[in-house]
């Protein structure tokens, strides 16, 4: 990279409301040749700049083979994300990226996949689900476990139902606080592992969500015989630059932006769960 790392102008093509606080923006680069796909690996992220307000890190949730468009699903939490929520089709943002290492999909080919996510953690594996379902014969079983605190936090409910009907795919959902129309389990997502058949010799686990959940899930999966190099997780830290310079996203000697955000468990085991790291 010898050029300045400038954002590129991107147009909002579509805005989808997923829940009262979560929305998806479908974006297209203004400068791209109209049929060029956005080149990224599922699990990578962009830095999205809202004019006049600021920049935030957002996972890319679409399939890399999508032409013209790429999607970001955003939870409204603060200044920039609230501003992003006000965008409408035709509005512009600046996009830098993609950054970081994505999920080990080449390694996962021919194996079973276990995706375990909590909260909006699902954003960083949704791209994997789309990727696998479009290339179904290249992968073994696909197990999707998703947990939310409140049943109404679950977004993409119709998609989960559709994914659950796909061949060789198992979808289990859990909510700490269920509502009357909730068909999933009551409790934490890690407990769903009790209801899943796992072949430790041919399963790659991809985990994303709150760090305490990740630690609990890893303990169960290791207990079920999955080797450390079959456990992958996506981590989050405050992030300013996206390319290893700003110093904000360090976890021990690791930089989430350039060494992650997807890490093998073996790489982060020493630092995971240490208070204040």
């Amino acid at each position: 990279m010898t050029r300045p790392d400038l954002p590129r102008s991107a147009r909002v093509d579509q805005r989808v409301v997923e829940s009262p606080t979560i929305f998806t923006l479908r974006l297209a680069f203004d400068d791209a040749a109209s049929d060029a796909p956005c080149a990224f690996v599922p699990g990578q992220f962009n830095m999205v700049w809202l004019p006049g307000v600021g920049e935030v890190a957002l996972s890319i949730v679409s399939d890399p083979a999508d032409e013209h468009f790429f999607d970001h699903t955003v939870r409204r939490v603060g200044r920039v994300t609230t501003g992003l929520d006000r965008l409408r089709p035709g509005d512009r943002v600046g996009v830098r990226g993609p950054f970081g290492h994505g999920w080990p999909l080449a390694r996962a080919e021919g194996n079973d996949l276990l995706l375990l996510t909590g909260g909006l953690g699902c954003a960083c594996v949704v791209s994997v689900i789309r990727y696998v379902l479009r290339r179904r014969q290249r992968f073994g079983r696909l197990v999707i476990l998703q947990g939310v605190r409140h049943a109404e936090d679950l977004i993409w409910r119709p998609q989960y139902e559709a994914w659950g009907r796909a061949p060789g795919t198992q979808v289990l959902l859990a909510a700490d606080a269920a509502t009357r129309d909730w068909h999933g389990a009551h409790g934490v997502v890690v407990d769903l592992l009790d209801r899943v058949r796992l072949d430790p010799r041919r399963t790659i686990a991809m985990l994303c969500g709150p760090e305490l959940m990740l630690i609990a899930a890893i303990a169960v999966l290791r207990g079920r015989g999955l080797p450390d190099d079959a456990l992958w997780l996506s981590l989050e830290r405050n992030m300013q630059c996206g390319h290893g310079r700003c110093g904000h996203c360090q976890i021990g000697p690791l930089r989430v932006c350039t060494d992650g955000p997807v890490f093998s468990y073996a790489a982060v085991a020493d630092h995971l769960g240490v208070h204040g790291v």
């Binding site: 360090q250 021990g252 204040g276 790291v277």
Partner: peptide, 27 residues
Amino acid sequence: HSRLHGASVRDGVAVRYRQWVTHKLAG
């Protein structure tokens, strides 16, 4: 510096000083 989801990952001076020293001399 370490703000994430409404809180600081390094939520006190002890872990912030530790971050400064461990990054500089270890990381």
